[in-house]
Design a protein around this nucleic acid. Sequence first.
DNA 1: ACCAGCACTTAGGAGCGTCCCG
DNA 2: CGGGACGCTCCTAAGTGCTGGT
Length: 608
Amino acid sequence: MLFFAQKVKCEDSNECKKPKRTKGEIEEARQLKIKKKEEEEQSRWRWWEEEKYEDGVKWRFLEHSGPYFPPEYQPLPDNVHFYYDGKKVKLSLAAEEVALFFAQMLDHEYTTKKVFRENFFKDWRKEMTDAERSLIQDLGKCDFGEIHAMHKAKVEARKNMTKEEKQALKEANQKIVDEFGYCLLDHHRERIGNFKIEPPGLFRGRGEHPKQGMLKKRIQPEDIIINCSKEACIPVPPAGHRWKEVRHDNTVTWLVSWTENIQGSIKYIMLNANSKLKGEKDWEKYEVARKLKSCVDNIRSQYRSDLKSRQMSTRQRAVALYFIDKLALRAGNEKEEGETADTVGCCSLRVEHITLHEQMDGKEYVVEFDFLGKDSIRYYNKVPVIKKVFKNLKLFLENKQPGDELFDRLYTSMLNKHLSSLMPGLTAKVFRTYNASITLQEQIKLITISDSVAEKLLSYNRANRAVAILCNHQRAPPKTFDQSMATLQSKIDARKEQLALAKSGLKQAKKEAKAKGSSEFKLQTLVERKKAAVKRCEEQLLKMEIQATDREENKQIALGTSKLNYLDPRISVAWCKNMGLPVDKIYNKSQRDKFAWAIDMTEVDFEF
DNA sequence: ACCAGCACTTAGGAGCGTCCCG
DNA sequence: CGGGACGCTCCTAAGTGCTGGT
């Protein structure tokens, strides 16, 4: 417990820096924060110490305030106009609202794309009156300039709000969170993840999405299904409205749902990641992955021998499993053509996505992958594979066109059915979790306890990064990346100069001390001071150099996704305990909340 | 036995608040 | 104390995988 008390102090550092406070006030504030922390700790639901519910039951009591709706559309002021073909046109309310959606996005690349413009224009015309529709026939003749300018001015004004205005806004938002942001679940107050209904707007798909630009309609209370206990107070719909349905289904975790008009899929309001419902599921996920650890050797030898099967579908399954295991590819469910961007996973790979090289870069049997995966993120990799896999791939490619399926006799459902027969609960995605977590554990085992804190954290981040690379978690390089790297480098250079200066100063002082005899007290302390200065300088330089390395290596890699979804938090918590580091060196507040179960239960000797 | 529908996890980017430096 | 960099939260799209109805 002492271990965590330390951490409380660290978080208060900003309180301590405020200079004008008296010592007493600082102490008071500190105590208050510690007290708040303790209270939070006290009120935290330690669900992981409780017995689990019977299968399928997610809760026994559920009460909430329903969803929070976005504000109604505010018509344009009279001095802001829309022009068609150079002439002022006063639009109907519905058409005007949709025009504003487009005008707001004019600075975005989306609005230059053909598909986006066409989809938008088609849906916009549906919102127009007959008269508007017969007039407005060409998007190119539409002038949204004034509306766009108005929007930009609004954004600017929001930025320039006074402190008081910002404070008032913050308080108003807090009030909304207080009212709608929490629910009561089995006697415990739990935070809701997304309690706000998604506002209307233009659909922004990722990649080359065929539906980009379509109108995402405003959700009405009449579209909403409420889920809560029979005994609970049913949330009140906005005045003059009613819910589509109120149901009492305790086999699901959602509080509110509605059907979205772009894909026709269902959207949900669910609990926050720090809730029991989410936490328990997360814990379970890692337990399944740990179970895989104990039988992965058998499974591997099985799929290796399946590579020789007489059955084509078995051989395809074996190769797919080899990829999923070795490369942490996603399963790759079939997708409806024309409904989404053209992306693939393992089972849906096409001939055009791989190239075989008998020899490449001095290696034998290399498979070159190049395809768009989830979120249209490119997966590019050149991987040496075992001969049997290579020969099989060659066979699968025979007599096929680029657009044909590589694994034409394989579906994720078959694959998962097979996997679950090998181990209960085993599916394709478990391999990602397993390989991610085991990689982290192996890598951070190599970190030496005698390293400095900064070095330990760099090594930890590197291990995290290895996982992110495995899972292909990318990000767009920050817009200011090159510039901020240059700034950091010049700081490093400046520090180097300073260090050289400090060193020569120390030398000088030593010389003088020697000349005048070591008995001279003043000179001795001067030497000591200079020594300390050199040391401090060296430490700061090292820290900056580590930071530079870390940042450079992280340019296009996103660490958050693997940290949040793939790495068993108990591995990291145990490592922190071993290294004598507080967990908040690696987890921020919301991550600590999400992983509270792991932080609480993990012992030093935890093994994934 | 199949598959559409449903429930839930995983994902990157936008935007906002905070911190740090000059 | 103003401005830029950065980290965090919010947002919602895009996956996975199960199931229940036919």
